[in-house]
């Protein structure tokens, strides 16, 4: 697979380490009333969609960027890739 790194262009997926669902970026608030239940969901539960999936890839053999890659799990088509820090910044 080739991943369109937003800074470096098309890079081979062998340079990356895959983590999984980008929902891992939404870490719950530890001070919330139901923090333990929220963390249980956060740590153990993932959606497993057939189709568009936002997921985290680490450019470990490259510039050490974490990327949010949008991939169609049924075709492996890459629909986009953004720097995770930008995505998180936009959410903030």
């Amino acid at each position: 697979m080739l991943i369109p790194h937003p800074l470096l262009g098309l890079r081979d997926s062998q340079e990356f380490t895959y983590l999984g669902d980008a929902s891992l970026m939404q870490r719950p608030d530890a001070s919330a009333q139901n923090a333990e239940a929220e963390f249980c969901d956060y740590v153990f539960l993932r959606d497993n969609p057939a189709g568009e999936h936002r997921e985290l890839w680490f450019h470990e053999q490259g510039d050490r960027s974490w990327l949010v890659v949008t991939r169609d799990t049924t075709t492996h088509e890459i629909l986009g890739a953004e720097l995770a820090s930008d995505v998180k910044g936009a959410v903030k």
């Binding site: 380490t17 891992l24 985290l56 680490f58 960027s65 974490w66």
Partner: peptide, 12 residues
Amino acid sequence: RQMEFAHQCLWP
């Protein structure tokens, strides 16, 4: 890797 994750994905 975990530290970079925390830095870039949790607390940029």
